[in-house]
Design a protein around this nucleic acid. Structure first.
Length: 810
DNA sequence: CCAGGCCGGGG
DNA sequence: GTGTACGGCCTGG
C-alpha cells in the first residue's frame, strides 16, 4: 500500500541484530503512525591504501564489518579514492573505526560520528515535517500507534505539517526555596492545547473551574497526566525549561512513587540525556523546550536580558504570568486553603503562555527544520554555528564531499587563541550635522565570501597562484581558486539566491512562513563568517575568516576614498556603512557616487542606499579628544529618530533619565534649538530640586542577579531588596527591584527607599541630577559647547555636593 | 590578558 | 553509544 505522512520524530532501535529506523508522524488523513525502515546500513569512510581483506575482517565482540566498497569521493574539495565500510550496527562504527585507523596504509577515517538517524535522513533525502510518500505494508505494531514497514520512502513535496501542539507545566512543593526532586512532590500538572485545558492536582478544595481535576494521590496525578497527553495525541509537546526542570522532575517523582511516566509512543520510559545540560527525549512526540530555542535563536534580536517565562512573554506576547507569590504555594498546600485555586490558574497561565510562545516561534523553527533538514527536536536544541555546520554537511554530501572531522580537544583549545583583525570603524568628529546620506554594503560578509570564492578548499590553490586576486592579512597573503567553485562560496551563494527569490514572493504576499524562511536564510548566511572562526567547527578556516574581514576593510576604505575624491565629507563609517555629509551636494549626487562605487565591486557585492537624514549628532568620548564610535542619533525625513549606542543609562536608570535624554535629542534634531534643550533641562533640574516630579519618574529598576545574602558588596538595589525582605516579601535571583534614593546623609545604600514607602518630598533631587540626568546628556551638550554647569542653574551650591567617592562607585 | 568559577531557566 | 558535558559573564591572578 501507499501512504503519505509527515515525519515528526525519528529514532532507531536494534531488532534481530540490525538497526531499524522508526519514523513517527501523522498521515495526511490526520492519523498518528510509525513507519519502519529496516533497510538502512550504518557506515563510515576510510581513506588510504590498507589491505582490503584485513579491513573487511575487522571485528570486536558483536561489532563487525559487513562489507567494504571502493568509492570515488571528494576530500577538501579534491577528488580521491575512498573506502566505504559498512558495519552490522551503528554502535560498531566508532569501535571499528578505532581499529581501522591502526591498520597499515590507512591515512584517515571520516564520518564515523554522524548519528545514524541523521545519516539516514541525509542519504534518503528526507525532510522532517515535510510530506513524505511511502510504499509499505502494515505490520503488527509494538507502539501505541499503527506500524508500517517501508519498501521505499521519499520526500515528495514542499507541503508542511500543521503540527498539533500541547504545552505543559508543573508546580512543585518547595517550602525552603531549594529544589529537591527526591523529597518534594509535584502538586499540579497543567496542560494547554487547542480547545484543551486541564490542571491536575491531588488536594481537594472547592472550585467551580471545570478544568481543575482532582485525583487522590501524586501517583494518580502522574498517571492522569500521561492519560491526558494520550487523549490529546499531540505531534509536539512544548514546555519552558522542561529539559532542565519539568521532565527530570517528573521522571524522578515517577521513580519515587514506583510508577511509570508512560508518555512515549513505544511504551518505553522517558529518557533524560546528559547531566549538566539535560535533554528530555519523548519517543514518538517531538519535545520542544522552547526556552532553549528562544534564548539561542530568537534571543539575539530581543530586548530583554532575562529569559524568564515572564520577561519573554511580556516582550513577545504582551502578556504576563498570573500574579501570585509562588513562594507561598507550599504553605497554602499544607493548609489546603482556597488559594490553591489561584495557583492552578497560575499553572494554567504558564501553559498558555508557553503554548502561545511556541505558536509564535514555530514558523521560524519549522523553517530551520526545512533548511537544515534535521528533526524539530534537534533544531530546538542547536545554536547558529551548528546550524551552519549541518547545512554544510547536507550540501557537502550533495556534492559528494567527505564531511571533515571535528577537531580534537587539544586542537580546539589551540584554535581559541586564534584572533582575527576585525572591522574598520571611522572615528567621527563630534558635532551636529545637517543632511546626511547613509549607504551600506548589502550582506557584506556573505557577499564577500561568495564573490571571492572564499572556502577552505579553494584557499591558496597552486593552480591560481599568479592570476587570482591576493588579499593581505595579518596572517599572510591569501588567494582563492578561480577555476573551481568552493564549498562555502557555493553554499552561501545559493542561500543568498534562495532568499532573493523568497523576498520577491514576499513583496506580493505577506505570508508568515515565507517571512520566517527569509529570516532563517538571512541569519544562516550571516552566521557563516562566525562559523569559519568557530573553534569546534569541522570546516574551521581561520584564513578564510581573516580574508573576509580584510576584504571588508579594503572595500569600505575604497568607498571612503572614492567619496572623498568626489568631494564628499565622510562623517562616519562602521564595518559596512558609510555616512556622508552632503554639504552643497544633492541626494542625487550621492546616489551617482553609489552607482560609481557599485561598478567597481566584484560578483554579487553591492552598496545600498540606506537612507537620507536631515539631521544627526555624533558625540565625543568621555575622556580626551575624538569621537565616540557606535554612538550617534539621526532623524529621518518622517521625523523618526534613529538612536544608536546611547545606552549608558539603560541599566539602573530611572524614567526621568531616559526621558531627558530622548527629549534633548528630539529638540536638537527636530527643532535645531539648543536654547530650548537647555531651558528644558534646567526646568527638569529645577523640578527635581523642588520635588515636583512624580515619584514614578524617579524609580530606579534593577533585576537582582542572586539572593540578597550572596552579595559581598551591598549596592543600592541589594539594600532595597533587603528592605523588601524585611517586610516579608520573597526576594530572590531575578526579582525586579524598584527603589528610589531619598534625601539624607551617608552612603547611597542607606538612603534607599521602596517606592511605596516614599513620600513626594522624600527623594533626593540632587542625586538624580548628578547621577541620572547629567550623565545621559553631558556629552550631547559638550558637542554644542554648553558646559554642564550651565544646565544646573544658580541654585546649585557646590559642584561636588552629593558627589563623593562612595557615590561614584554606585 | 587568561583561566577558572558561577549561573541561568524552573518552584 | 556514529560517546560524554553549554556558553556568557565576572573575578582573581
Amino acid at each position: 500500500m501507499r501512504l503519505s505522512f509527515y515525519p515528526t520524530e525519528i529514532e532507531y532501535a536494534i531488532r534481530n541484530g540490525r538497526a531499524v529506523v522508526w519514523l513517527f508522524g501523522r498521515t495526511v488523513e490526520g492519523k498518528q503512525i510509525c513507519v519502519i525502515d529496516e533497510e538502512f546500513e550504518p557506515y563510515f569512510y576510510v581513506v588510504g591504501t590498507p589491505d582490503l581483506e584485513e579491513l573487511g575482517k575487522l571485528v570486536d565482540g558483536e561489532h563487525k564489518v559487513v562489507r567494504v566498497e571502493q568509492v570515488r569521493k571528494r576530500l577538501n574539495e579534491h577528488e580521491i579514492n575512498a573506502l566505504k565500510i559498512f558495519t552490522n550496527i551503528p554502535k560498531a562504527v566508532p569501535i571499528i573505526k578505532d581499529k581501522a585507523i591502526q591498520l597499515a596504509g590507512v591515512e584517515g577515517a571520516y564520518e564515523y560520528d554522524i548519528l545514524y538517524v541523521r545519516r539516514y535522513l541525509i542519504d534518503k533525502k528526507l525532510v522532517p515535517l515535510v510530506k513524505t510518500d511511502v510504499e509499505c505494508e502494515e505490520i503488527a505494531s509494538e507502539f501505541k500507534v499503527p506500524a508500517f514497514r517501508a519498501k521505499s520512502i521519499h520526500c515528495v513535496s514542499e507541503e508542511v505539517l500543521q503540527p498539533k501542539m500541547l504545552a505543559i507545566d508543573i508546580e512543585t512543593y518547595n517550602p525552603d526555596n531549594r529544589m529537591n526532586m527526591k523529597k518534594n512532590p509535584v502538586l499540579m500538572l497543567g496542560l494547554y492545547g487547542k480547545d484543551f485545558k486541564r490542571v491536575i492536582t491531588w488536594k481537594k478544595f472547592s472550585t467551580k473551574e471545570p478544568w481543575i481535576e482532582f485525583v487522590p494521590t501524586e501517583s494518580d496525578a502522574l498517571l492522569r497526566f500521561a492519560e491526558s497527553i494520550a487523549e490529546y495525541a499531540p505531534d509536539m509537546l512544548a514546555g519552558y525549561f522542561t529539559d532542565g526542570f519539568d521532565f527530570p522532575y517528573l521522571v524522578e517523582r515517577a521513580k519515587v512513587n514506583k510508577t511509570k511516566l508512560d508518555i512515549c509512543l513505544d511504551y518505553g520510559s522517558l529518557e533524560i540525556r546528559g547531566k549538566t545540560q539535560s535533554e528530555a527525549k519523548v519517543t514518538g512526540i517531538a519535545h520542544l523546550d522552547i526556552f532553549k530555542f528562544i534564548r539561542r535563536v530568537i534571543g539575539r534580536s530581543m530586548k530583554t536580558d532575562s529569559f524568564s517565562l515572564d520577561a519573554v512573554s511580556k516582550e513577545l506576547l504582551g502578556e504576563q504570568k498570573h500574579p501570585v507569590d509562588i513562594g507561598h504555594l507550599a504553605p497554602a498546600w499544607d493548609e489546603g486553603s482556597r488559594e490553591l485555586e489561584d495557583y492552578c490558574r497560575y499553572n494554567l497561565q504558564d501553559c498558555k503562555l508557553t503554548y502561545e510562545l511556541t505558536e509564535q516561534v514555530l514558523p521560524n523553527l519549522i523553517e530551520f527544520v526545512r533548511i537544515i533538514r534535521l528533526p524539530p527536536y534537534d533544531i530546538n536544541r542547536m545554536s547558529f554555528s551548528i546550524f551552519v555546520e549541518w547545512y554544510l554537511i547536507h550540501q557537502a554530501c550533495a556534492q559528494n564531499e567527505i564531511i571533515l572531522n571535528k577537531p580534537r580537544r587539544t586542537e580546539e583549545s589551540d584554535r581559541l587563541a586564534d584572533r582575527i583583525k576585525g572591522a574598520f570603524v571611522f572615528e567621527p568628529k563630534p558635532g551636529f550635522y545637517k543632511n546626511i546620506a547613509v549607504f551600506d554594503f548589502r550582506s557584506l560578509y556573505p557577499s564577500i565570501i561568495a564573490s571571492h570564492n572564499i572556502s577552505k578548499g579553494t584557499l591558496n590553490c597552486p593552480c591560481c597562484k599568479e592570476q587570482s586576486e591576493r588579499i593581505e592579512t595579518e596572517r599572510g597573503i591569501f588567494w582563492y581558486c578561480q577555476k573551481r567553485k568552493g564549498l562555502f562560496s557555493s553554499v552561501i551563494g545559493e542561500l543568498i539566491e534562495r532568499r532573493g527569490a523568497i523576498k520577491k514572493k514576499l513583496k506580493s504576499s505577506k505570508d508568515a512562513l515565507l517571512a520566517a524562511r527569509s529570516e532563517a536564510l538571512k541569519v544562516l548566511a550571516n552566521s557563516f563568517y562566525g562559523y569559519m572562526a568557530f573553534a569546534p567547527a569541522r570546516w574551521y578556516c581561520i584564513e578564510c575568516a581573516e580574508s573576509t574581514t580584510a576584504f571588508a576593510r579594503k572595500y569600505i576604505h575604497q568607498a571612503i576614498d572614492t567619496a572623498q575624491k568626489e568631494g564628499f565629507t565622510v562623517l562616519y563609517s562602521d564595518t559596512d556603512s558609510i555616512f556622508l555629509l552632503l554639504d552643497n551636494k544633492t541626494k542625487d549626487d550621492s546616489l551617482a557616487l553609489m552607482e560609481n562605487i557599485n561598478k567597481t565591486l566584484p560578483g554579487i557585492m553591492e552598496l545600498d542606499y540606506e537612507g537620507f537624514y536631515p539631521a544627526g549628532i555624533f558625540v565625543g568620548l568621555k575622556a580626551g579628544e575624538g569621537g565616540a564610535k557606535k554612538k550617534y542619533a539621526l532623524i529621518d525625513e518622517q521625523g523618526k529618530m534613529k538612536i544608536r549606542g546611547f545606552e549608558t543609562i539603560r541599566r539602573n536608570s530611572s524614567v526621568i533619565a531616559r526621558e531627558v535624554q530622548g527629549t534633548v535629542l528630539k529638540i536638537l534634531l527636530k527643532e535645531h534649538d539648543p536654547k530650548k534643550a537647555k531651558a528644558y533641562v534646567r526646568c527638569v533640574v529645577e523640578d527635581l530640586r523642588k520635588n515636583k516630579l512624580p515619584i514614578e519618574s524617579v524609580v530606579i529598576t534593577t533585576a537582582l542577579s542572586k539572593g540578597t545574602g550572596a552579595y559581598t558588596s551591598v549596592g543600592p538595589h541589594v539594600a532595597a531588596a533587603q528592605r523588601m525582605e524585611s517586610k516579608g516579601e520573597r526576594v530572590g535571583s531575578g526579582t525586579i527591584i524598584r527603589y528610589i534614593v531619598a534625601k539624607g546623609k551617608g552612603k547611597i545604600r542607606d538612603k534607599v527607599r521602596l517606592p511605596e514607602e516614599a513620600k513626594q518630598d522624600d527623594y533626593d533631587g540632587e542625586y538624580y541630577i548628578t547621577n541620572q540626568v547629567v550623565p545621559g546628556i553631558e556629552r550631547i551638550f559638550a558637542v554644542l559647547n554648553i558646559p554642564v554647569d550651565d544646565l544646573l542653574g544658580e541654585t546649585r551650591q557646590s559642584s561636588l555636593s552629593g558627589f563623593d567617592g562612595q557615590n561614584r562607585n554606585l
